[in-house]
Amino acid sequence: MGENAPQGPLDRRGKGEAGLLSELKLAVPWGHIAVKVWGSQKNPPVLCLHGWLDNANSFDRLIPLLPQGFHYVAMDFGGHGLSSHHHPGFPYYHQSFVSDVRRVATAFKWTRFSILGHSFGGTVGSMFACTFPEMVDKLILLDTIPFALDSNETENILTYKRRNIEHMLKVEASQKSPRVSSPEELLQGLLSKNIHLSRECGELLLQRGTTKVDTGLVLNRDPRLSLAENVFDFTSKEMFLQFIRSLQANVLFIKATQGYFGVRRENDNKKQPLLFMLDALRVILKERFQYVEIPGNHYVHMNEPHLVAGFISSFLQSQPRTSSRL
Rank of each mutant, 00 (worst) to 15 (best):
A34T: 07
F97I: 01
L191E: 11
V300P: 03
P44G: 03
H118I: 10
L26W: 06
M135L: 07
Q319K: 14
S99K: 13
M302A: 01
I284M: 10
L82Q: 15
L281W: 05
R224H: 03
S246E: 12
V171C: 03
P64I: 04
R208E: 09
R13F: 15
L65R: 12
Y72T: 01
L252F: 04
P29E: 13
L316N: 01
G216F: 07
P273W: 09
I165M: 07
P273Y: 09
A18V: 02
L47F: 07
E185P: 00
Y72P: 01
V136E: 05
S236E: 10
F147L: 13
L65A: 07
F147K: 08
Y260S: 08
L307V: 11
T154M: 14
V73W: 03
P320A: 06
L278M: 13
F253G: 00
P29L: 09
S181P: 01
A5P: 00
T322K: 15
A56D: 01
P183Q: 10
W52G: 06
K109E: 13
V73G: 02
K237Q: 14
L285H: 06
P45K: 02
L206C: 10
V46D: 04
P6S: 06
D268W: 12
E229D: 13
R103C: 07
N164K: 15
E184S: 11
G122C: 09
V46H: 04
E155I: 12
Y299T: 10
D54H: 08
S114P: 00
H87E: 13
T257Q: 13
H298Y: 06
G117V: 02
P146R: 03
V136N: 03
V73M: 05
Y93D: 07
I294W: 05
P29C: 08
G296W: 08
G296S: 11
L47M: 15
L53S: 07
L204Y: 00
H298I: 05
T154A: 15
S114H: 10
V251E: 06
Q258G: 02
L206M: 11
L278Q: 15
R208D: 06
N194V: 05
N267E: 14
Y260I: 00
H32I: 02
L247M: 10
P6K: 06
F70D: 02
F77V: 01
T111S: 15
S182G: 12
H71C: 13
Y93M: 06
L26K: 08
A280R: 12
M75R: 04
A173F: 02
K176V: 04
D143E: 03
L275I: 10
Q248Y: 08
